[in-house]
Amino acid sequence: MIDDSKPIFMQIAELIENDIISGVLAEEAQVPSTNEFAAFYRINPATAAKGINRLVEDGLLYKKRGIGMFVTEGAPQRLRAQRREKFQQQFIAPLTAEASKLGIGVDELVAMIKTGSES
């Protein structure tokens, strides 16, 4: 779950973002506490707090004093829009690069994607 590729706080933030996008954490739902995250992922609580705080700064989570942390209304839509922007660079670019290496033309690639989506 947690690996060495980047700072843990960023990975925690991404894990929560994924749960927001997939609806595991619904809008206005309460998010587990920093300490719960720390215990669950076996990480330093300060690191967990840093990841959560980043989402608070981004306005994806908000704090209710003395109660906890909640998912902001509209957070899933905002995250989806962000991910769409990165989609080209993260997924399409490597796909077309590999395809051209293998001599797969654009039309063939499109056909393969269509077949893939059907199954």
Partner: peptide, 9 residues
């Protein structure tokens, strides 16, 4: 390790 994280938190 688990108890350390819990208790430290």
């Amino acid at each position: 390790y688990d108890r350390l994280v819990e208790d430290f938190a």
